[in-house]
Amino acid sequence: MRRVNPFAYTFVIPFLIVFAIFRIYPFLLGILTSFTDARVGPRPGNFIGLENYIDVINNSEVRRAFIVTFQYSLIVVPMSFFIGLAMAVYVDRKLPTHTISRLVFFAPFVLTATIVAIVWNWMFQTQFGLVNVGLGMLGLPDRIAWLKEPDLILPVIAFITTWWQAGFAMVIFLGGLQNIPGELIEAARIDGANPWQTFWRVTFPLLLPVSTLVITITLIEAMRVFSLIHIITRGGPSDHSTTVVFYVFQEGFVRFEQGMAAAVGVVLFLVIMVLTVLRFTLLRGDQSYF
């Protein structure tokens, strides 16, 4: 016989109601909608089986959106990872100069996407933008149309995202660094390792769990990239920055093919689920530093 506390429900029910209506129900409804030809309006749409999913595979636009998203991830994840790591290592000292650096590196993260977009739109402006001006001062090509070159647009968005969010990776790395016992580093130095060796042979391997964390978080964020694309490029030039979520947005709220948009959303969910499960299984192996 176990005593169950009847008051417990008064604690959970308010949250559970909101959770069920605005999280679980829409999720299930999304899966349901993905099997219909729903368009905008109150009509739920007809059941059309797997047609949307067959379309997802056959439709070159959708395939393109996934490829673009993966390409973007391949650039932005390593970029944020290494810049975030470098920042953390540089900043992990108690000197005032490093404290200022830490604040500066993290500051962009608190800004909303719109500001970041406006700032970098101006920075990457072809004629007068500070990026090209700087390249000009160094005697490099300085008439690059950063936001209009099909081949440059993904690296540019990745770079902007890194400026925006590397501070986040930095802070997580900092947490990892501070969890490494100082004796280990000292022991390595007494064993005759120089700082470079100490970092790559001792510190970096010990950051492995934190690294997995940073990679999976930035990867999931990359799969969901939308706001910068929507404000800066609107998917362009042509479709070179039409990512999955931007495609969902276009399909669902501009062309109003909501059944199809829902199907693409479900595929995105599957990808993110795999990444999340991967993250937790990878982390479970080594939690000794948390």
């Binding site: 999280r23 999304g30 729903a38 799969m223 979520v245 948009a261």
Partner: peptide, 23 residues
């Protein structure tokens, strides 16, 4: 219920755009 709460971490908000809009 707690398992469900944890599982919902995996549901990206973007999947819910269409149904939420309709709701």
């Amino acid at each position: 219920l707690f398992w469900l709460v944890l599982a919902s971490f995996m549901m990206p908000f973007e999947v819910m755009l269409i149904p939420l809009y309709r709701m």
